[in-house]
Nucleic acid binder design. Sequence first.
DNA 1: CGTGAAACCCCGTAGAT
DNA 2: ATCTACGGGGTTTCACG
Lengths: 149, 149
Amino acid sequence: MKIDGIDKKIIRSLVKDARVPILSIARDVGISGAAIHQRLRKLEKSKLIDGYQMKINPEALGYTTIAFVGVFLDTTAVLSSIIKRLKEVREVVECHYTTGNFTIFIKVLCKDNEDLMCLLDTKIKMINGVTKFETFISLNHQIDRQVYI
Amino acid sequence: MKIDGIDKKIIRSLVKDARVPILSIARDVGISGAAIHQRLRKLEKSKLIDGYQMKINPEALGYTTIAFVGVFLDTTAVLSSIIKRLKEVREVVECHYTTGNFTIFIKVLCKDNEDLMCLLDTKIKMINGVTKFETFISLNHQIDRQVYI
DNA sequence: CGTGAAACCCCGTAGAT
DNA sequence: ATCTACGGGGTTTCACG
C-alpha cells in the first residue's frame, strides 16, 4: 500500500477528528472535496482504514480500574472456546495469545479494584483450563495512540 | 453521569461508525435531529465522549508485530523522564505504570520481529533507569473493543 | 489524479411547545 | 427535552481534462 503526503494529511486529520468535514480537509490540503473523497474511497478499499469510531471515556462511566491479566492455561484448554467465554465477559476489552510465560494476555476495564477482584474470582478463574493468573493493575497511563503515520 | 436508552443508541451508532449522519441516527431512534444534536452536546460536555477517531489498520502499513513489554526500572529512574523518552519512540502506543512485577508496561507496534528486537536493543534498553524487561509477543488477537454500553 | 457543477442531504441554531 | 423551519454548507456523483 502506497500513500503520499496528501493521503497522510487526510489520515492525520481524520485520526484527530473523524467528524471533520471533507471540505475542510480539502481547504487545508488545497485540492477539491471530490478529490479527497476519491482518495478516501481508495484508502477504505485498501483496508488501511478500519473504520471511524467515537471514543468513549470509561472514567465518565465509573470505570476507573484498568488491569492486564496474564493467564496460564493447561493443555486441556481449547483456545477457541476460551476466547468465546472471554468475549462474553464485558470487562475484557483485549485478548492476545502471546509468547512468554503466559498463554494469553487480557486487558480488562472495571469500576474499581473490588469489581476487578470479583471479576477474576467469579468469571476468569471459573473458565475451564485456566490454571492461574497474574494481575497488573494500571495505576496510571500516559500514552495511548495509534500507529504513526 | 446518567444516560438513558436514547443516549445509548446514539453512542452505539457513533462507536460503530463515527461518520454516520446525525439525521440518520435521528431516523433510527425516532426523534428529531435537533434533539440528537442537543444530547450529543451534553454527552460531549460530560466528558463521556473523548473524541472521534479514524481507526488505522497497522497491518496495511506493514506493522505485523504487536508486543507487550514489562519493564523493570531501578530506583534512580524518574518516571516522568522515562515517559518523555518513551513518547519519542513511535512504536510505543501504550504505556502504563503498574502494580506487580514490572514497573511499567508498554505496548509496541513493529513491522516484524526483527524490528522489535532492534527497538528493544537500541531504544528501550538504552533508556536510563531501565534495568531489564520481559517481552510478550502477541501471536494472535481476538478481542479489541471499548467499554460496554 | 484532478476539476467544477448539480443534486441531494446534513448541520446548527432559532424560536415555539 | 422535544419539535419544525431555515440558511448555510457538506457529500456524492458526474462528465471531462
